[in-house]
Design a protein around this nucleic acid. Structure first.
Lengths: 116, 116
DNA sequence: CCCATACATTGATGCTGGTCAATATTCAGG
DNA sequence: CCTGAATATTGACCAGCATCAATGTATGGG
């Protein structure tokens, strides 16, 4: 939750053209890279796609595990990463856990790209 | 370059609600994850940001290396990954190599997210 | 209570990826 | 040509991550 600017001093004399623009600070870049790390795995992309494709808007782990030739612990692990990155929402009802897309989360990531 | 659908058989009897949607195939997901892998590193995000912030639209390696307390080989490595993923363009003029954003590339990635 | 089911957690393992030192390549100048 | 500067490539090292087996934790049914 640290949004410090951390502007680089830009202490170069000459070469091409001096880059006076602030660009991204080190901590800011590290923060933004977390979401892309979450998206950088094929199985997690498939999980997101499956949850999104579900007509009810939510999926349980048993359903997702069946479609992803992966072990159940591995699927739970991926789902946790997606929840921690703010992309998925988890709701437990009875013995089952239902995962759903956080509204607008994917659009927010798309916005991150255009405001690099 | 393989765009086979690879639909999963969806052989589950019942649980919550059956996911009849195609969603993402394994190879399709692997393909799309490559761009996000390229974006999943803080230093590469900073490189993209620096190139974008440059008023001339392009930056040379010497300039980028000076701002990123990283070794020159490491910066070249990251730039190669960004070029291979289709985000940056490389043009060599004389001894210098100038990198620029591929027009529309970031918007295409944003589009990938909404069409998951 | 006891057991089965659905899911999460832990620990271990193998592989991918980021980084650097050293070297190679390419180009401009003298 | 020869030298120096800018960049790319190679090889090696270490951290991080994806995966699985085993176990733990609820929850519901009998």
């Amino acid at each position: 939750m640290n949004a410090l600017p951390t502007l680089e001093p830009s202490t170069e004399e000459a070469c091409c053209t001096p880059a006076g623009q602030p660009a991204l600070g080190a901590d800011e870049a590290k923060q933004k890279s977390l979401v892309f790390k979450a998206l950088a795995d094929p199985n997690r992309l498939r999980l997101l796609s499956m949850v999104k494709a579900e007509s009810s808007g939510e999926s349980c782990v048993c359903d997702l595990t069946a479609s992803l030739d992966l072990g159940q612990p591995t699927v739970s692990h991926h789902l946790k990463i997606l929840v921690d990155s703010g992309l998925l929402h988890r709701e437990k009802r009875g013995t089952w856990a239902y995962y759903s897309l956080v509204p607008g989360a994917l659009d927010d990531v798309a916005g991150l790209l255009t405001t690099l």
